[in-house]
Design a binder for these strands. Structure first.
Lengths: 183, 183
DNA sequence: ACAGCCATGTAACTCGTTACATGATTAC
DNA sequence: GTAATCATGTAACGAGTTACATGGCTGT
């Protein structure tokens, strides 16, 4: 039962459990961009194509080739695979790749002005991304009552918003400390 | 000048600018495990071997094969590459892969008890990782005065600690909300 | 009709991993 | 002296990317 698929495969299966049950790879990529990207990497378009094909080969989704594009729908076997993935596999600790922190660590080979502008830019990016997520979250309002499937995306969106807020606070604080030190 | 290397290469170059200037691949991996892993992925041992070799081929580090193992030291060209990487390349937004959030999003295909225990486990992992980072940070005390190279790792460690604290708070809050809903 | 974008794929390639092979060092 | 661990690599593989090719759709 525990077919060992890449995480992205499960992520895509998960996306297929929401909303219109029959979607093209393109639409699936859009779903990934609007939600998945905040907690995972949104897969490249090409990977969505190849991964959906694999899922179809394994019988975890059914492919129907009516129009020009293939449309996918999650199969019962897919739901089973998803459930057992959630319940049986080990969860693991979050990994992040933080290019700002990575550069700041070796701040001594750079100069304070560069570090400062890097953090300022990061603050702007943070704000923008937070706005995007807020929009996503706003669109869930009304469909996210307790018991609804979208309840959970809504909870996770709140999580993400809080995370971005915290990250903003920390970064601001860091800027203050840097400024104090260089004067 | 802007040789396009994988991020990991720059990360390793960065690690070579601290402490004992001449290290083996093994020791470099240890440095990565103790600091890098909190803000980036710590590369696999094998990748450290291959990446250091590439850096040597490019002349960014010098390899000296005295003992059994090859020892590496950052070269002037390496410092230049590192500097120009920090100052010229685009920084990009942090990416994280959050297996807990990913599973929670599709909470509707699981059951509340499983979700709950997943979050509880996550809290424990968070605490442990935070402890590890605190240890690393403690070891910096004394060598992290303003102006010292280790000043920046110290700042970034504080950043990480604050991040873990925030993540803990959010997760606790999430647990409360989940419990409220299921009763 | 044609310029530009939307959409569907395929191919080549790289990063980074796990698995494997092997040699040195230490503990008992 | 032998088991366990530390250390140094190599090889095979896989996930995920960018680049490429192509077809349909839309506005003017």
């Amino acid at each position: 039962m525990s077919q060992d698929l890449p995480m992205t495969a499960y992520a895509l299966l998960g996306l297929l459990t929401f909303g219109d049950p029959e979607v093209t790879a393109y639409e699936l990529k859009q779903r990934a961009d609007s939600t998945l990207r905040f907690y995972w990497t949104s897969p490249a378009m090409s990977q969505v194509y190849s991964e959906t094909q694999r899922l179809a080969d394994l019988g975890l989704v059914t492919a129907s080739g009516e129009g020009r594009a293939t449309r996918y729908r999650i199969a019962d076997a897919g739901r089973d695979a998803l459930r057992s993935w959630i319940e049986e596999t080990q969860v693991g600790f979050p990994v992040w790749k933080h290019p700002v922190a990575l550069r700041l660590i070796i701040g001594h080979v750079s100069d304070p002005a560069r570090l400062r502008s890097m953090l300022v830019d990061y603050l702007a990016d943070l704000e923008e991304t937070r706005r995007d997520l807020q929009e996503v979250r706003d669109r869930l309002v009304g469909a996210d009552a307790v018991g609804e499937p979208l309840r959970y995306p809504s909870l996770v969106a709140d999580w993400g918003l809080a995370h971005f807020d915290s990250e903003r606070d920390i970064t601001r604080d860091l800027l203050v400390r840097l400024d104090e030190e260089t004067t």
